[in-house]
Amino acid sequence: MDRAPGPSVRLKLTLSYAGFVMLAGALLLAAVWVFLNRVPHPGLIIVPDYRLAVVRTFAPTAVAVLTFLLVFGLAGGWILAGRMLAPLTRITDATRVATDGSLSHRIRLPGRRDEFRELADAFDAMLARLEAHVAEQRRFAANASHELRTPLAVSKALLEVARSDPDGRSGEIIERLDVVNTRAIDLTEALLLLSRADRGSFSREPVDLSLMAEEATETLLPLAEQHGVVIETSGDIAPALGSPALLLQLTTNLVHNAIVHNLPAQGTVWVRTGVRPGTVVLTVENTGRRISARLASTLTEPFRRGTDRVRTGHAGVGLGLAIVRTIAQAHDGTLTLTPRAAGGIRITVELPASSSNTGR
Protein backbone atom coordinates (compact mmCIF):
# COMPACT_ATOMS: atom_id res chain seq x y z
CA MET A 1 0.00 0.00 0.00
CA ASP A 2 1.35 3.43 -0.97
CA ARG A 3 1.09 5.72 2.05
CA ALA A 4 1.94 9.38 2.53
CA PRO A 5 5.01 9.98 4.76
CA GLY A 6 4.32 10.91 8.38
CA PRO A 7 6.16 11.49 11.64
CA SER A 8 8.12 8.57 13.02
CA VAL A 9 6.94 6.55 15.99
CA ARG A 10 10.02 7.66 17.89
CA LEU A 11 9.10 11.32 17.39
CA LYS A 12 5.53 10.64 18.44
CA LEU A 13 6.68 8.86 21.59
CA THR A 14 9.15 11.69 22.34
CA LEU A 15 6.45 14.34 22.04
CA SER A 16 4.15 12.19 24.16
CA TYR A 17 6.79 11.82 26.89
CA ALA A 18 7.60 15.56 26.80
CA GLY A 19 3.92 16.50 26.83
CA PHE A 20 3.26 14.25 29.79
CA VAL A 21 6.22 15.71 31.72
CA MET A 22 5.08 19.24 30.89
CA LEU A 23 1.53 18.44 32.01
CA ALA A 24 2.77 16.92 35.26
CA GLY A 25 5.00 19.97 35.86
CA ALA A 26 2.17 22.39 35.09
CA LEU A 27 -0.15 20.58 37.48
CA LEU A 28 2.53 20.66 40.16
CA LEU A 29 3.10 24.40 39.68
CA ALA A 30 -0.63 24.98 39.73
CA ALA A 31 -0.85 23.13 43.04
CA VAL A 32 1.97 25.28 44.43
CA TRP A 33 0.25 28.43 43.17
CA VAL A 34 -3.01 27.48 44.85
CA PHE A 35 -1.14 26.65 48.02
CA LEU A 36 0.62 30.05 48.05
CA ASN A 37 -2.66 31.86 47.54
CA ARG A 38 -4.47 29.96 50.26
CA VAL A 39 -1.60 29.92 52.78
CA PRO A 40 0.29 33.25 52.50
CA HIS A 41 4.00 33.13 53.17
CA PRO A 42 4.89 34.98 56.45
CA GLY A 43 7.60 36.99 54.71
CA LEU A 44 5.18 38.27 52.08
CA ILE A 45 2.23 39.17 54.28
CA ILE A 46 3.61 42.65 55.05
CA VAL A 47 4.25 43.33 51.39
CA PRO A 48 1.65 45.65 49.87
CA ASP A 49 -0.42 44.04 47.10
CA TYR A 50 0.45 40.56 48.25
CA ARG A 51 -0.94 38.70 45.21
CA LEU A 52 1.03 40.81 42.74
CA ALA A 53 4.16 40.11 44.71
CA VAL A 54 3.45 36.40 44.62
CA VAL A 55 3.03 36.52 40.84
CA ARG A 56 6.28 38.44 40.33
CA THR A 57 8.15 36.02 42.57
CA PHE A 58 6.53 32.82 41.35
CA ALA A 59 6.28 33.44 37.58
CA PRO A 60 10.03 33.47 36.68
CA THR A 61 10.56 30.30 38.68
CA ALA A 62 7.60 28.61 37.02
CA VAL A 63 8.83 29.56 33.53
CA ALA A 64 12.31 28.26 34.33
CA VAL A 65 10.92 25.00 35.69
CA LEU A 66 8.66 24.46 32.68
CA THR A 67 11.52 25.22 30.27
CA PHE A 68 13.72 22.71 32.08
CA LEU A 69 10.95 20.10 32.03
CA LEU A 70 10.40 20.67 28.29
CA VAL A 71 14.09 20.19 27.44
CA PHE A 72 14.39 17.27 29.84
CA GLY A 73 11.21 15.63 28.48
CA LEU A 74 12.29 15.98 24.85
CA ALA A 75 15.84 14.72 25.41
CA GLY A 76 14.85 11.98 27.81
CA GLY A 77 11.87 10.95 25.68
CA TRP A 78 14.02 10.74 22.55
CA ILE A 79 16.56 8.51 24.32
CA LEU A 80 13.94 6.32 25.99
CA ALA A 81 11.93 5.97 22.80
CA GLY A 82 15.06 4.93 20.93
CA ARG A 83 15.87 2.27 23.50
CA MET A 84 12.31 0.98 23.57
CA LEU A 85 12.04 0.83 19.78
CA ALA A 86 15.43 -0.78 19.18
CA PRO A 87 13.91 -4.34 19.07
CA LEU A 88 11.31 -3.11 16.60
CA THR A 89 14.10 -1.79 14.38
CA ARG A 90 15.73 -5.23 14.36
CA ILE A 91 12.42 -6.83 13.46
CA THR A 92 11.93 -4.32 10.62
CA ASP A 93 15.43 -5.00 9.30
CA ALA A 94 14.77 -8.76 9.39
CA THR A 95 11.51 -8.22 7.52
CA ARG A 96 13.32 -6.34 4.78
CA VAL A 97 15.91 -9.13 4.54
CA ALA A 98 13.13 -11.73 4.25
CA THR A 99 11.39 -9.60 1.61
CA ASP A 100 14.58 -9.73 -0.46
CA GLY A 101 14.34 -13.53 -0.44
CA SER A 102 16.66 -14.52 2.42
CA LEU A 103 14.43 -16.75 4.53
CA SER A 104 17.31 -18.20 6.54
CA HIS A 105 17.80 -14.97 8.50
CA ARG A 106 16.56 -14.99 12.11
CA ILE A 107 16.12 -12.14 14.60
CA ARG A 108 16.97 -14.10 17.77
CA LEU A 109 16.17 -11.13 19.99
CA PRO A 110 17.96 -11.47 23.38
CA GLY A 111 16.51 -10.62 26.75
CA ARG A 112 13.57 -11.69 28.85
CA ARG A 113 10.15 -12.26 27.37
CA ASP A 114 8.03 -9.20 26.65
CA GLU A 115 5.80 -8.03 23.79
CA PHE A 116 8.73 -7.32 21.46
CA ARG A 117 10.42 -10.65 22.24
CA GLU A 118 7.17 -12.53 21.63
CA LEU A 119 6.77 -10.73 18.31
CA ALA A 120 10.36 -11.55 17.33
CA ASP A 121 9.99 -15.21 18.33
CA ALA A 122 6.72 -15.48 16.39
CA PHE A 123 8.40 -13.89 13.37
CA ASP A 124 11.33 -16.32 13.61
CA ALA A 125 8.93 -19.26 13.82
CA MET A 126 7.02 -17.95 10.80
CA LEU A 127 10.26 -17.63 8.82
CA ALA A 128 11.25 -21.18 9.75
CA ARG A 129 7.90 -22.56 8.58
CA LEU A 130 8.02 -20.46 5.43
CA GLU A 131 11.56 -21.58 4.64
CA ALA A 132 10.57 -25.22 5.11
CA HIS A 133 7.48 -24.73 2.95
CA VAL A 134 9.44 -23.06 0.15
CA ALA A 135 12.07 -25.82 0.28
CA GLU A 136 9.31 -28.45 0.09
CA GLN A 137 7.71 -26.68 -2.87
CA ARG A 138 11.04 -26.53 -4.67
CA ARG A 139 11.61 -30.24 -4.08
CA PHE A 140 8.08 -30.91 -5.26
CA ALA A 141 8.60 -28.91 -8.46
CA ALA A 142 11.92 -30.63 -9.14
CA ASN A 143 10.46 -34.10 -8.49
CA ALA A 144 7.36 -33.37 -10.58
CA SER A 145 9.52 -32.18 -13.45
CA HIS A 146 11.64 -35.31 -13.18
CA GLU A 147 8.62 -37.61 -13.02
CA LEU A 148 6.99 -35.95 -16.02
CA ARG A 149 10.22 -35.83 -18.01
CA THR A 150 10.68 -39.62 -17.77
CA PRO A 151 7.52 -40.69 -19.68
CA LEU A 152 8.02 -37.87 -22.18
CA ALA A 153 11.58 -39.00 -22.86
CA VAL A 154 10.45 -42.61 -23.24
CA SER A 155 7.69 -41.54 -25.63
CA LYS A 156 10.18 -39.57 -27.70
CA ALA A 157 12.53 -42.56 -27.88
CA LEU A 158 9.71 -44.89 -28.93
CA LEU A 159 8.58 -42.47 -31.62
CA GLU A 160 12.11 -42.26 -32.96
CA VAL A 161 12.25 -46.06 -33.11
CA ALA A 162 8.91 -46.15 -34.93
CA ARG A 163 10.10 -43.48 -37.36
CA SER A 164 13.26 -45.37 -38.22
CA ASP A 165 11.46 -48.72 -38.59
CA PRO A 166 7.86 -47.99 -39.61
CA ASP A 167 7.16 -51.54 -40.78
CA GLY A 168 8.71 -53.24 -37.76
CA ARG A 169 7.28 -53.68 -34.29
CA SER A 170 4.58 -51.05 -34.59
CA GLY A 171 2.11 -52.99 -32.44
CA GLU A 172 4.56 -53.39 -29.58
CA ILE A 173 5.62 -49.75 -29.79
CA ILE A 174 2.03 -48.56 -29.73
CA GLU A 175 1.33 -50.72 -26.68
CA ARG A 176 4.35 -49.34 -24.84
CA LEU A 177 3.39 -45.78 -25.82
CA ASP A 178 -0.07 -46.38 -24.42
CA VAL A 179 1.40 -47.53 -21.09
CA VAL A 180 3.79 -44.56 -20.92
CA ASN A 181 1.11 -42.04 -21.83
CA THR A 182 -1.28 -43.57 -19.30
CA ARG A 183 1.32 -43.06 -16.60
CA ALA A 184 1.84 -39.45 -17.68
CA ILE A 185 -1.91 -38.85 -17.60
CA ASP A 186 -2.21 -40.43 -14.14
CA LEU A 187 0.61 -38.25 -12.87
CA THR A 188 -0.96 -35.10 -14.33
CA GLU A 189 -4.36 -35.93 -12.83
CA ALA A 190 -2.73 -36.61 -9.46
CA LEU A 191 -0.97 -33.24 -9.58
CA LEU A 192 -4.24 -31.49 -10.44
CA LEU A 193 -6.05 -33.28 -7.61
CA LEU A 194 -3.28 -32.35 -5.20
CA SER A 195 -3.51 -28.71 -6.26
CA ARG A 196 -7.30 -28.69 -5.96
CA ALA A 197 -7.26 -30.19 -2.47
CA ASP A 198 -4.46 -27.85 -1.36
CA ARG A 199 -6.49 -24.78 -2.37
CA GLY A 200 -9.51 -26.02 -0.45
CA SER A 201 -11.76 -25.00 -3.36
CA PHE A 202 -14.56 -27.49 -2.77
CA SER A 203 -18.03 -27.50 -1.26
CA ARG A 204 -18.69 -29.36 1.97
CA GLU A 205 -21.59 -31.69 2.64
CA PRO A 206 -22.34 -34.57 5.05
CA VAL A 207 -20.23 -37.64 4.28
CA ASP A 208 -20.19 -41.06 5.97
CA LEU A 209 -16.63 -42.39 6.03
CA SER A 210 -17.90 -45.95 6.57
CA LEU A 211 -19.67 -45.81 3.21
CA MET A 212 -16.52 -44.44 1.62
CA ALA A 213 -14.55 -47.34 3.07
CA GLU A 214 -17.05 -49.88 1.70
CA GLU A 215 -17.04 -48.30 -1.77
CA ALA A 216 -13.23 -48.14 -1.92
CA THR A 217 -12.99 -51.76 -0.76
CA GLU A 218 -15.45 -53.00 -3.38
CA THR A 219 -13.64 -51.07 -6.12
CA LEU A 220 -10.21 -52.44 -5.18
CA LEU A 221 -11.33 -55.99 -4.38
CA PRO A 222 -10.12 -57.38 -7.76
CA LEU A 223 -6.70 -55.83 -7.17
CA ALA A 224 -6.61 -57.37 -3.69
CA GLU A 225 -7.46 -60.80 -5.06
CA GLN A 226 -4.76 -60.41 -7.68
CA HIS A 227 -2.19 -59.73 -4.95
CA GLY A 228 -3.51 -62.43 -2.63
CA VAL A 229 -4.58 -59.87 -0.02
CA VAL A 230 -7.64 -60.19 2.20
CA ILE A 231 -9.53 -57.00 3.11
CA GLU A 232 -11.48 -56.83 6.37
CA THR A 233 -13.82 -53.87 6.82
CA SER A 234 -15.47 -52.99 10.11
CA GLY A 235 -16.51 -50.05 12.24
CA ASP A 236 -19.32 -47.64 12.98
CA ILE A 237 -21.07 -44.94 11.02
CA ALA A 238 -18.61 -42.02 10.85
CA PRO A 239 -20.37 -38.84 9.70
CA ALA A 240 -18.02 -36.06 8.64
CA LEU A 241 -18.38 -32.86 6.65
CA GLY A 242 -16.46 -32.42 3.42
CA SER A 243 -16.15 -33.24 -0.25
CA PRO A 244 -17.45 -36.75 -1.10
CA ALA A 245 -15.17 -36.97 -4.15
CA LEU A 246 -12.03 -35.97 -2.24
CA LEU A 247 -12.79 -38.15 0.78
CA LEU A 248 -13.45 -41.10 -1.51
CA GLN A 249 -10.10 -40.40 -3.19
CA LEU A 250 -8.46 -40.30 0.26
CA THR A 251 -9.97 -43.64 1.25
CA THR A 252 -9.19 -45.27 -2.10
CA ASN A 253 -5.58 -44.13 -1.96
CA LEU A 254 -5.16 -45.57 1.53
CA VAL A 255 -6.68 -48.94 0.65
CA HIS A 256 -4.74 -49.11 -2.63
CA ASN A 257 -1.52 -48.29 -0.79
CA ALA A 258 -2.24 -51.02 1.77
CA ILE A 259 -2.89 -53.62 -0.94
CA VAL A 260 0.08 -52.86 -3.17
CA HIS A 261 2.66 -52.50 -0.40
CA ASN A 262 1.78 -55.67 1.44
CA LEU A 263 3.24 -59.14 1.78
CA PRO A 264 3.97 -61.06 -1.45
CA ALA A 265 1.21 -63.50 -0.51
CA GLN A 266 -1.41 -64.01 2.23
CA GLY A 267 -1.44 -60.38 3.24
CA THR A 268 -4.22 -58.63 5.13
CA VAL A 269 -5.70 -55.16 5.11
CA TRP A 270 -7.91 -53.88 7.93
CA VAL A 271 -10.18 -50.91 7.22
CA ARG A 272 -11.95 -49.50 10.27
CA THR A 273 -14.05 -46.45 11.02
CA GLY A 274 -14.92 -45.06 14.42
CA VAL A 275 -16.25 -42.09 16.34
CA ARG A 276 -14.45 -40.08 19.00
CA PRO A 277 -15.60 -36.99 20.92
CA GLY A 278 -15.87 -34.33 18.24
CA THR A 279 -14.08 -36.34 15.55
CA VAL A 280 -14.45 -39.36 13.28
CA VAL A 281 -11.59 -41.74 12.51
CA LEU A 282 -10.64 -43.83 9.50
CA THR A 283 -7.88 -46.40 10.08
CA VAL A 284 -6.26 -48.48 7.34
CA GLU A 285 -3.78 -51.08 8.58
CA ASN A 286 -1.87 -53.64 6.56
CA THR A 287 0.70 -56.38 6.93
CA GLY A 288 3.99 -56.06 5.11
CA ARG A 289 7.68 -55.51 5.57
CA ARG A 290 8.93 -53.78 8.67
CA ILE A 291 9.70 -50.09 8.25
CA SER A 292 11.29 -47.64 10.63
CA ALA A 293 9.44 -44.77 12.25
CA ARG A 294 11.77 -42.36 10.48
CA LEU A 295 10.87 -43.77 7.08
CA ALA A 296 7.17 -43.78 7.93
CA SER A 297 7.31 -40.06 8.76
CA THR A 298 8.59 -39.28 5.24
CA LEU A 299 6.12 -41.35 3.22
CA THR A 300 3.65 -38.46 2.91
CA GLU A 301 6.18 -36.33 1.05
CA PRO A 302 5.41 -36.00 -2.67
CA PHE A 303 7.15 -38.63 -4.83
CA ARG A 304 8.50 -40.35 -1.73
CA ARG A 305 8.47 -44.14 -2.05
CA GLY A 306 9.50 -46.88 0.31
CA THR A 307 12.44 -49.10 -0.51
CA ASP A 308 10.35 -51.73 -2.29
CA ARG A 309 7.80 -49.56 -4.06
CA VAL A 310 9.36 -48.87 -7.40
CA ARG A 311 9.76 -52.57 -8.12
CA THR A 312 6.05 -53.32 -7.83
CA GLY A 313 3.70 -53.50 -10.73
CA HIS A 314 1.51 -50.80 -9.22
CA ALA A 315 4.11 -48.35 -7.99
CA GLY A 316 1.82 -45.43 -8.79
CA VAL A 317 3.17 -41.95 -9.26
CA GLY A 318 4.45 -41.35 -5.74
CA LEU A 319 1.63 -38.98 -4.78
CA GLY A 320 -0.83 -41.33 -3.06
CA LEU A 321 -0.07 -40.49 0.56
CA ALA A 322 0.80 -36.90 -0.31
CA ILE A 323 -2.72 -36.51 -1.70
CA VAL A 324 -4.15 -38.17 1.43
CA ARG A 325 -2.29 -35.74 3.68
CA THR A 326 -3.37 -32.73 1.63
CA ILE A 327 -7.02 -33.82 1.58
CA ALA A 328 -6.98 -34.45 5.33
CA GLN A 329 -5.45 -31.04 6.03
CA ALA A 330 -7.93 -29.35 3.67
CA HIS A 331 -10.71 -30.90 5.81
CA ASP A 332 -9.06 -29.64 9.04
CA GLY A 333 -8.02 -33.19 9.88
CA THR A 334 -4.83 -35.02 10.80
CA LEU A 335 -2.92 -37.93 9.29
CA THR A 336 -0.84 -40.27 11.44
CA LEU A 337 1.48 -43.04 10.19
CA THR A 338 2.58 -45.69 12.70
CA PRO A 339 4.76 -48.68 11.84
CA ARG A 340 3.42 -52.03 13.05
CA ALA A 341 5.72 -54.14 15.21
CA ALA A 342 4.94 -57.23 13.13
CA GLY A 343 5.50 -55.37 9.85
CA GLY A 344 3.43 -53.08 7.71
CA ILE A 345 1.93 -49.77 8.74
CA ARG A 346 -1.14 -48.28 10.40
CA ILE A 347 -2.48 -45.05 8.88
CA THR A 348 -5.07 -43.07 10.79
CA VAL A 349 -7.09 -40.14 9.46
CA GLU A 350 -9.01 -38.09 12.01
CA LEU A 351 -11.53 -35.52 10.78
CA PRO A 352 -13.96 -33.19 12.58
CA ALA A 353 -17.35 -34.80 13.02
CA SER A 354 -20.37 -33.24 11.39
CA SER A 355 -22.50 -31.00 13.61
CA SER A 356 -25.28 -33.59 13.70
CA ASN A 357 -22.91 -36.04 15.38
CA THR A 358 -21.18 -33.80 17.92
CA GLY A 359 -24.08 -33.94 20.32
CA ARG A 360 -24.04 -37.75 20.64
Results as ranks from 00 to 15, higher is better:
Gly6Thr: 10
Gly6Asp: 09
Pro7Glu: 00
Ser8Ala: 07
Lys12Cys: 05
Leu13Phe: 05
Gly19Ile: 01
Gly19Gln: 04
Phe20Ile: 14
Phe20Cys: 12
Ala24Asn: 08
Ala24Asp: 02
Ala24Lys: 13
Gly25Met: 13
Trp33Thr: 05
Trp33Lys: 05
Trp33Tyr: 06
Val34Phe: 14
Pro40Ala: 15
His41Lys: 14
Gly43Ile: 13
Ile45Tyr: 12
Ala53His: 14
Ala53Cys: 08
Val55Leu: 12
Val55Ile: 08
Arg56Glu: 09
Ala59Ser: 11
Ala62His: 04
Ala62Ser: 07
Phe68Ile: 14
Phe68Gln: 13
Leu74Glu: 08
Ala75Val: 14
Gly76Asp: 14
Leu80Trp: 12
Gly82Trp: 00
Ala86Val: 03
Pro87Ser: 04
Arg90Ser: 03
Arg90Asn: 05
Ile91Asn: 06
Asp93Pro: 00
His105Lys: 04
Arg106Thr: 05
Gly111Phe: 10
Gly111Ile: 04
Glu115Ala: 03
Glu115Ile: 02
Ala120Val: 11
Phe123Asp: 00
Asp124Met: 02
Met126Leu: 15
Glu131Tyr: 09
Glu131His: 07
Ala132Glu: 07
Ala132Thr: 09
Gln137Trp: 00
Arg138Asp: 04
Ser145Ala: 01
Pro151Asn: 13
Ala153Glu: 15
Val161Gly: 01
Arg163Asp: 11
Pro166Leu: 10
Gly171Pro: 03
Asp178Gln: 10
Thr182Trp: 02
Thr182Tyr: 03
Ala184Thr: 09
Ile185Met: 06
Asp186Pro: 00
Ala190Lys: 02
Ser195Ala: 08
Asp198Pro: 00
Phe202Leu: 03
Glu205Arg: 13
Pro206Ser: 00
Asp208Val: 02
Asp208Ile: 01
Glu214Asn: 14
Glu218Ser: 07
Thr219Met: 12
Leu221Arg: 03
Pro222Asn: 05
Val229Asp: 03
Val229Cys: 13
Val230Glu: 01
Val230His: 15
Ile231Ala: 08
Thr233Ile: 07
Ile237Asp: 01
Leu247Tyr: 11
Leu248Ile: 02
Leu248Asn: 08
Gln249Cys: 04
Thr252Ser: 13
Thr252Tyr: 08
Val255Trp: 11
His256Ile: 15
Ala258Gln: 08
Val260Arg: 09
His261Asp: 03
His261Pro: 08
Thr268Trp: 13
Trp270Ala: 15
Thr273Ser: 01
Gly274Pro: 04
Arg276Gly: 05
Gly278Asp: 14
Gly278Ile: 03
Val281Ile: 04
Val284Asn: 12
Val284Ile: 11
Gly288Arg: 00
Arg290Leu: 11
Thr300Leu: 08
Thr300Cys: 13
Glu301Pro: 07
Phe303Ser: 02
Arg304Ala: 09
Arg305Gln: 13
Asp308Ile: 10
Asp308Tyr: 15
Val310Leu: 08
Arg311His: 10
Arg311Met: 13
Gly316Lys: 13
Gly320Val: 15
Ile323Gln: 11
Ile323Ala: 13
Arg325Phe: 10
Asp332Phe: 07
Leu335Cys: 03
Leu335Ala: 02
Leu337Ile: 09
Pro339Leu: 15
Arg340Phe: 09
Arg340Ser: 02
Gly343Cys: 14
Ile345Trp: 02
Ile347Lys: 01
Ile347Ser: 07
Ser355Met: 10
Ser356Tyr: 06
Asn357Tyr: 12
Arg360Ala: 13
